[in-house]
């Protein structure tokens, strides 16, 4: 049925979670290799699960709560792996902790294949949904790294060290990671919105969906971050604060709009 791969991936992420936690509490890094092995294997099985589901249902695996959370988790994972290849260090140790938590949440939702309106069954809608979730995943990571940046920046300014500051990479690296996340996240998110907009007008005629308006608002904030970054202004704190703010908008868009309003974007 394919769900077996989900269970296996979840189990491996759980192992990664335990190993990482053990490493943090014991303040040793002898488990780091094992963390890598289980994370990579978990990721491979997770990928397999998504592919099987995609083929079986012939629609992108992002339309139900379960699918959306699981694909979001997968996006975070692939990005972490990408960052790990560039910067090594303990990136995966931390992300596997978050990844397990999200994967765990997704396990609680119904795993039935959601029935979407037949007119929405199209490669464009698939692309729209996949890219939107992927973009948001990049933004979430940018949010986390912005917080880390601000914490680290403050510690260096105030000359107070200890705790997390000892294992964080340099400010320059934290900022570079942020830059890269926004650099890739923004265009992906933009394409997702554009495709969505075009299809939306095409299929449903001209309607104002609250989610759509909110997404556009969020997009404008990200546009300004993107602009600041590309322009090469070195005031990183400003960018970090904006990234945090933008992400709060995204979160509200995801939960608030879904719960408070009757949007057809509501996960099935």
């Amino acid at each position: 049925m394919g769900t077996i791969f989900f269970e296996l991936a979840l189990t491996l992420y759980f192992a990664g979670f335990l190993l990482s936690m053990a490493g943090i509490f014991r303040k040793k890094d002898d488990f780091d290799k094992s963390v890598l092995v289980v994370s990579f294997s978990g990721f491979a099985l997770h990928t397999l699960y998504l592919i099987i589901r995609y083929i079986k249902s012939s629609q992108a695996p992002v339309f139900s709560m379960h699918e959306a959370t699981s694909f979001f988790t997968w996006s975070i994972m692939i990005t972490s792996i990408w960052l790990w290849f560039s910067y090594k260090g303990k990136i995966l140790n931390f992300s596997v902790i978050i990844i397990f938590l999200f994967m765990f949440i997704s396990a609680f939702f119904s795993r039935n294949i959601p029935l979407i309106k037949p007119e929405l069954k199209s490669i464009w809608i698939d692309m729209h949904a996949l890219m939107a979730v992927f973009g948001i995943a990049l933004f979430s990571l940018a949010f986390v790294f912005s917080i880390l940046y601000l914490i680290h920046e403050k510690a260096i300014k105030n000359k107070k060290f200890g705790g997390i500051g000892n294992i964080l990479p340099s400010l320059e690296v934290l900022d570079k990671i942020n830059y890269r996340l926004i650099f890739w996240g923004f265009p992906i998110y933009t394409i997702a919105l554009l495709v969505g907009l075009v299809k939306y007008l095409n299929i449903l005629g001209f309607l104002f969906d609250p989610k759509e308006i909110w997404s556009f608002l969020t997009w404008v904030v990200y546009l300004s971050i993107f602009y600041l970054r590309i322009k090469g202004d070195w005031r990183k704190k400003k960018a970090a604060y904006l990234t945090i703010f933008a992400f709060l908008l995204v979160i509200f868009g995801f939960f608030g709009i879904n719960l408070l309003t009757e949007s057809f974007h509501k996960p099935l």
């Binding site: 680290h152 260096i156 500051g165 964080l168 990479p169 340099s170 400010l171 320059e172 690296v173 570079k176």
Partner: peptide, 9 residues
């Protein structure tokens, strides 16, 4: 050590 907290390379 402190400089390396700010700069990478």
């Amino acid at each position: 050590g402190l400089i390396k907290k700010v700069f990478h390379d």
